[in-house]
Simulated scan of single mutants.
Amino acid sequence: MRPIPTVPVLAALLGPLALCALLLPTRGHFANTNVALLLVAVVVAVAISGRQLAGALAAVTAALWFDFFFTRPYQTVDISKSADLVTAGLLLAVGLTVSQLAARARHYRMVAITGADHLSRVRGAAVLARSANSALTVVDHVRAQLTDLLQLSECSFEYGSLLGHPPRLEADGSISVGGQPWDTDRLGLPPEAVELRIFGTGKYLGRFMLTGTPGTVPSHQARLVATTLADQAGAALDSLQRPVKAA
Score class of each variant (00 low, 15 high):
residue 160 G to T: 00
residue 140 D to S: 13
residue 149 L to V: 08
residue 161 S to F: 03
residue 174 S to D: 09
residue 161 S to H: 04
residue 174 S to I: 03
residue 146 L to R: 10
residue 139 V to S: 06
residue 164 G to P: 05
residue 158 E to K: 11
residue 156 S to N: 04
residue 171 A to E: 15
residue 176 S to K: 12
residue 169 L to R: 12
residue 179 G to A: 05
residue 155 C to N: 04
residue 150 L to F: 01
residue 151 Q to M: 06
residue 163 L to M: 03
residue 153 S to C: 08
residue 169 L to H: 11
residue 140 D to Y: 05
residue 164 G to F: 00
residue 174 S to C: 07
residue 144 A to P: 02
residue 154 E to S: 10
residue 152 L to K: 02
residue 167 P to E: 10
residue 169 L to T: 10
residue 169 L to A: 12
residue 147 T to N: 13
residue 149 L to P: 10
residue 160 G to Q: 00
residue 179 G to E: 08
residue 171 A to I: 15
residue 166 P to G: 04
residue 164 G to M: 01
residue 179 G to K: 07
residue 165 H to Q: 14
residue 141 H to R: 15
residue 168 R to W: 05
residue 166 P to H: 06
residue 152 L to E: 03
residue 156 S to P: 00
residue 161 S to W: 01
residue 159 Y to T: 09
residue 173 G to T: 05
residue 139 V to H: 02
residue 155 C to A: 10
residue 165 H to L: 14
residue 176 S to C: 07
residue 166 P to L: 12
residue 159 Y to W: 11
residue 178 G to C: 08
residue 151 Q to E: 06
residue 177 V to Q: 07
residue 168 R to C: 14
residue 157 F to W: 00
residue 144 A to V: 03
residue 165 H to V: 13
residue 164 G to Q: 05
residue 161 S to Y: 05
residue 173 G to P: 12
residue 176 S to V: 13
residue 163 L to G: 02
residue 142 V to K: 07
residue 151 Q to W: 01
residue 143 R to H: 07
residue 161 S to Q: 08
residue 177 V to E: 02
residue 180 Q to Y: 03
residue 169 L to Q: 13
residue 151 Q to P: 05
residue 155 C to I: 04
residue 160 G to K: 00
residue 162 L to W: 00
residue 147 T to L: 12
residue 162 L to Q: 02
residue 148 D to Q: 15
residue 166 P to I: 07
residue 163 L to A: 06
residue 160 G to M: 00
residue 158 E to C: 06
residue 143 R to N: 07
residue 177 V to P: 02
residue 171 A to Y: 08
residue 164 G to N: 05
residue 141 H to N: 14
residue 154 E to W: 02
residue 148 D to L: 15
residue 180 Q to R: 13
residue 176 S to T: 14
residue 144 A to F: 05
